[in-house]
């Protein structure tokens, strides 16, 4: 049994991948709770796509080292644009987001299509390469994760208040626009921390699925966060084990990023089934 479940991680690249996914799983568990509360799923999706042109332009301008800076700039700019667009309310915000998202993504596609390695760059961005994550990337991820979690510990209760009752928060004198901006920037930081290693598809899942799973099972925010972290970490572990096992023992190559997402979704489906059964039992 341990040959399948533990041994793979004696390989250094598997151990690094597991560590990266554990950090991101905890990060996702915490941040996705706020994404859920503020109904920011669409905004999170927007951020994952808009970081793409930053990655591409950063790479074109300064090579491998430019990627992180480019992603960071694009992520923060998008967070600001999102806050302004949703606060202005002149256009229905979902349409504005959809346009912003695809426009930014198009910039990335256009720039990258000038390069010779067009298709492989695009797929790397979408699906990441968690199995080749480097030590310095691990450090980057860990630092960003620490910043995000610390910020949430400090202003978490204000963000919850704002999510529950925006008008009340404004009436009580809280700077609601600033709080919105902070949360959007935090989501952007998660995307930047994760996107290079695990790709945009996995980031969306990490920002939505853990808390959505927790919310199906419990009603209290603290527990939603806790379950979210457990789901995030277990999903990462299960995805790695399955994709590794499939390619080594089964001869089937499975994208590890995509397998992690499917593991997370499987947890969501189990929670959904459990919630359904519980409702039937309680109704009796």
């Amino acid at each position: 049994m341990s040959a399948y479940l533990i041994d793979p991680f004696s390989l250094p690249f598997m151990a690094r991948a597991l560590l990266e996914l554990c950090i991101l799983g905890v990060l996702g568990g915490v941040v996705s709770a706020f994404v859920l509360l503020r109904k920011l799923a669409f905004a999170a999706d927007t951020l994952t796509h808009t970081v793409f042109p930053g990655v591409v332009i950063g790479f074109v301008a300064a090579g491998e080292g430019g990627i992180f800076v480019g992603a960071l700039i694009a992520g923060v700019l998008t967070a600001v644009a999102l806050t302004v667009l949703t606060a202005a309310r002149r256009v229905s915000s979902d349409a504005a987001l959809a346009v912003l998202l695809t426009a930014m993504f198009s910039v990335g596609v256009v720039v990258v299509s000038r390069q010779t390695e067009y298709t492989s760059d695009l797929t790397t961005f979408l699906f990441g390469h968690v199995l080749t994550v480097s030590g310095s990337q691990l450090v980057q991820t860990a630092v960003l994760a620490a910043i995000v979690v610390l910020t949430l510990v400090v202003i978490g209760k204000e963000l919850v208040l704002r999510a529950f009752d925006g008008v009340g928060a404004r009436a009580a004198g809280y700077p609601v626009a600033a709080l919105d901006l902070v949360l959007n920037v935090l989501v952007a930081l998660v995307v930047v921390a994760a996107v290079q290693a695990v790709g945009t598809v996995l980031v969306i899942a990490l920002l939505i699925v853990p808390a959505a799973t927790g919310r199906l099972l419990v009603d209290r925010l603290g527990l939603v966060v806790g379950i979210g972290c457990v789901v995030g970490v277990l999903g990462g572990y299960a995805g790695l084990v399955i994709s590794f096992g499939a390619s080594v023992y089964g001869g089937v190559r499975l994208s590890s990023g995509a397998t992690v997402v499917l593991a997370l979704v499987a947890a969501y489906v189990l929670a959904l089934a459990y919630a359904g059964v519980r409702r039937v039992v309680v109704a009796r």
Partner: peptide, 21 residues
Amino acid sequence: TAATGVVLSAGFALGVALLSA
């Protein structure tokens, strides 16, 4: 929005997993 997000990432990941095989 949460439901849409879950379905969205599930669908996308499924496509990638199938294609990566």
